[in-house]
């Protein structure tokens, strides 16, 4: 998918959002129609107009003149691996608990990112978990997810 197409899709999406947002303000309670509802309407209108203007402009600009943006990752395989690993990690936090989930996530991600020697992997993992345990759990008394499965 070309960059220009992505841009146009986003703009079209935001334009739809603006219209929906504008229409939704009708359901606000009557006594805020003059205050918060009109604020939201103003936002919706501005966003709609700006998106429409940008769509028109990008139409006129034609293809190819958008200019290249930031390069993505040079290693798509690792990029996707990391993304999948974080998503799985986030989803596992609640059922498995913070410490078990992290004890798997850290070494797994390190290996996926290209670490091979076991010593740094084990040491870093243990070090990070120890720091978290001391600073978050002991000193600041943050209640980390305990896990609901067990």
């Amino acid at each position: 998918m070309s960059q220009r197409l992505v841009g146009i899709l986003i703009l079209a999406g935001l334009l739809t959002l603006a219209v929906l947002l504008y229409r939704s303000t009708a359901s606000y309670p009557a006594f805020v129609q003059g205050s918060t509802a009109s604020y939201v309407r103003f936002l919706a209108m501005s966003m709609g107009i700006l998106c429409a203007a940008e769509l028109l402009l990008s139409w006129r600009r034609k293809a190819g003149s958008g200019g290249a943006t930031e390069e993505g990752s040079k290693n798509p395989r690792r990029f996707w691996a990391l993304l999948v690993l974080i998503v799985v990690y986030a989803l596992a936090l609640d059922p498995v608990g913070f410490f078990p989930a992290s004890a798997v996530f850290l070494p797994a991600t390190m290996v996926a990112m290209g670490a091979r020697r076991p010593l740094p992997i084990v040491l870093t993992t243990a070090g990070i978990l120890a720091v978290v345990h001391v600073v978050f759990t002991k000193l600041l008394e943050v209640q980390l997810p305990k896990g609901t499965l067990f």
Partner: peptide, 16 residues
Amino acid sequence: LKRIAPLALAMCLALP
């Protein structure tokens, strides 16, 4: 440290 690490981990796991 290598030996303590799994131990610490085990303790974390065992707490619940």
